[in-house]
């Protein structure tokens, strides 16, 4: 009970703090200096219609590379932590069947979900969306397959190849930027194209496609590892 009292005290203090923050908050009436720079320069400098994408892939591209690295590390550590519990395969399953609705529905929906994921990350520089969202959608297709048949054999070697190839190409494109354009991960190694079309914004669609494939492969392999782990 004493512990709950401390928790309540802490929450009251935090709540007071939050209330003061909220009461004293007045939204900006115009963009701050950094925001104004991005708003006015993104279109002619980088050619991307989605300013958030331009910030993530180019202006703060190094941070995104770090973010992808963090995800890679998380997926690797999950593999390491769970590796002892991995099933060796070939075990006869005594799971009940998934049911007609789920197994037929997954056959119908998985290609469409994969298509939607690819659409989301290829159009990341024009519409809301991008590599991380598209990758998550790709992984949801893998999740659906796993739900329909938890013991389905996945080609995890293919997933690993996709992941490492796209990660490597991402860094290669970044290094190309040093030699061909203004710096590491500069998107102007390719012509900017006509503004607002799919072949625009230089290397941003390519980088975001690579990020999407990598994130999708990482999330899928995380799901696979979590699903294949079983206590014996």
């Amino acid at each position: 009970m004493v512990r709950h009292l401390f928790v309540l005290l802490l929450l009251t203090a935090l709540g007071t703090l939050f209330f003061a923050l909220q009461a004293g908050f007045s939204p900006d009436s115009e963009l701050n200096q950094v925001g104004r720079y991005y708003a006015s320069h993104t279109a002619q400098d980088l050619g991307a219609a989605n300013i958030v994408t331009a910030i993530i892939v180019t202006y703060r591209g190094l941070d995104t590379l770090g973010e992808v690295t963090v995800l890679f590390l998380a997926s690797t550590i999950i593999g390491m932590v769970l590796s002892k519990g991995m099933q060796k395969g070939g075990k006869v399953s005594d799971l009940p069947p998934a049911g007609e609705l789920l197994s037929t529905g997954s056959r119908l929906l998985v290609p469409l979900i994969l298509l939607l994921g690819c659409y989301v990350f290829i159009n990341g520089h024009l519409t809301p969306g991008g590599g991380f969202q598209g990758g998550a959608i790709l992984a949801s297709a893998a999740l659906m397959l796993l739900l329909a048949d938890p013991l389905r054999p996945f080609n995890s070697r293919f997933i690993a190849v996709v992941e490492s190839t796209s990660g490597l190409l991402y860094v290669v494109i970044g290094v190309l930027g040093i030699f061909v354009a203004g710096g590491f991960l500069d998107n102007r190694i390719l012509p900017l194209g006509s503004y607002g079309t799919i072949f625009s914004a230089g290397a941003i669609p390519i980088i975001y496609t690579l990020i999407g494939l990598k994130v999708g492969a990482e999330f899928s392999s995380m799901l696979l590892k979590l699903s294949k782990t079983e206590e014996r």
């Binding site: 963009l31 925001g35 993104t42 219609a49 607002g196």
Partner: peptide
């Protein structure tokens, strides 16, 4: 509106029409 420039938000008045993208 959202920081995505298209027909509804022309490049010229992006500074006064979009929210902070950061």
């Amino acid at each position: 509106t959202a920081p995505i420039l298209d027909d509804a938000v022309p490049v010229a008045d992006a500074v006064t029409r979009i929210i902070d993208p950061l």
